[in-house]
Simulated scan of single mutants.
Amino acid sequence: MVQISVLFVVVLILILLAVTTVRQGTVAVITVFGKFQRILRPGLNFKIPFIERIYMRVSYQNRSMELKFQAITQDQANVNFSAMMLYAVLNQESETIQNVAFKFVDDRSFMQALIRSVEGSVRAFVATKKQSEILQLRMEIIHHVKEQLDKQLEDWGYHLLDLQMNDISFDEVILQSMAKVVASNNLKAAAENEGQALLITKTKAAEAEGNAIKISAEAEKLASQLRGQGVALFREEVARGMAIAAREMENANLDASFILFSMWTDAIKHFAENGKGNTIFLDGSAENMQRTLQQLQSTLQKKN
């Protein structure tokens, strides 16, 4: 009876040692005498007591990690990065799980290698760029890191799900110099805009003045033409009137020189009335008057 009880206890212990459970989101790596044998899926599993043992449990759930590091640009400026990395086991295949379990001595070694790989990839990219370009290349940095790490992480049994550059900053001295550059560029742009505006204003003013002068010249030209035409018409009408008056006086058997004499006296009268105190010197001798009448008469004959 005692033997049966002992046997029952031994069997119960063996069953308890053979039964194991695996949590959801993880797999268990089984080894036999230190060599990989198989993996156990989530749920209730059995293993051979004392021969098979659980080497480690591998989680294939997503993992996150925050990184803070520095990089130096091509023009020797320090850039401070704050990043968040999201990664996970590539898949649940046996080969992948073996890589996760046996590539590194422990998780600490893997984390150190992963962090150094991300930092090294970022630093290699930043070293080829200038400080003024870094802030505009956030997405390019992320793409570069993922391209560099995808193959390497796959060999380790992982893959990079996401990488976010939460903050990219410079040293205080660099920030002050960048602020001065931005301020000077703004002043330069403002000065250029002001110069362009002044040039446009002066150009428009010159164009307006030129157009005004052109219009004034055209108007003056037209006025001169009209005045000339008026004077010509006046003279033509005067000549026509004198010719008619001369013919009428000839028909009446009167001397035509009387018209010229009358015009002469009217002109003197007009000078006297509108001269405003001006002095007019006239030769009132009979010879001068006779000479003047002859000149006027010859002019009249030429008009006819």
Results as ranks from 00 to 15, higher is better:
51 I>T: 08
96 T>F: 00
55 Y>D: 09
198 L>H: 05
244 I>T: 12
31 T>N: 07
194 E>T: 15
144 H>F: 10
190 A>T: 10
255 D>R: 07
261 F>H: 07
178 M>S: 05
51 I>H: 06
119 E>S: 01
170 F>E: 07
99 N>I: 11
236 E>G: 10
233 L>A: 15
284 G>D: 14
9 V>P: 00
251 N>E: 14
32 V>M: 04
224 S>V: 07
299 T>A: 14
208 A>T: 09
229 Q>M: 10
70 Q>M: 01
126 V>R: 01
156 W>H: 03
23 R>C: 13
143 H>Y: 08
185 N>P: 03
20 T>G: 02
290 Q>E: 15
160 L>F: 03
211 N>M: 06
245 A>H: 05
226 L>R: 12
302 K>M: 10
9 V>L: 14
150 D>K: 03
17 L>V: 04
183 A>Q: 13
259 I>W: 01
238 V>I: 09
67 L>N: 08
240 R>H: 09
98 Q>Y: 01
55 Y>C: 04
1 M>P: 02
289 M>E: 14
96 T>P: 00
76 Q>W: 00
20 T>S: 06
56 M>V: 15
300 L>H: 07
130 K>L: 09
116 R>N: 00
190 A>S: 13
16 L>Y: 12
304 N>S: 10
301 Q>C: 08
279 T>Q: 13
144 H>Q: 03
243 A>L: 06
33 F>G: 11
303 K>G: 03
179 A>N: 10
82 S>H: 10
126 V>G: 04
223 A>G: 04
101 A>M: 07
164 Q>K: 15
273 E>A: 04
214 K>Y: 05
22 V>K: 00
13 I>E: 06
179 A>T: 07
68 K>A: 13
84 M>R: 15
98 Q>L: 09
302 K>L: 11
254 L>I: 12
209 E>K: 05
73 T>H: 02
171 D>K: 01
271 F>Q: 08
21 T>N: 14
210 G>D: 06
100 V>T: 08
182 V>T: 08
202 K>I: 15
182 V>C: 02
141 I>L: 01
142 I>G: 06
68 K>P: 03
39 I>A: 01
115 I>P: 00
191 A>S: 11
57 R>A: 15
252 A>F: 12
19 V>D: 04
231 V>K: 06
235 R>D: 12
205 A>W: 03
59 S>N: 11
97 I>E: 00
235 R>E: 14
114 L>A: 07
92 Q>G: 12
73 T>W: 02
135 L>Y: 01
44 L>W: 11
82 S>Y: 06
114 L>I: 02
195 G>I: 13
120 G>W: 01
191 A>V: 08
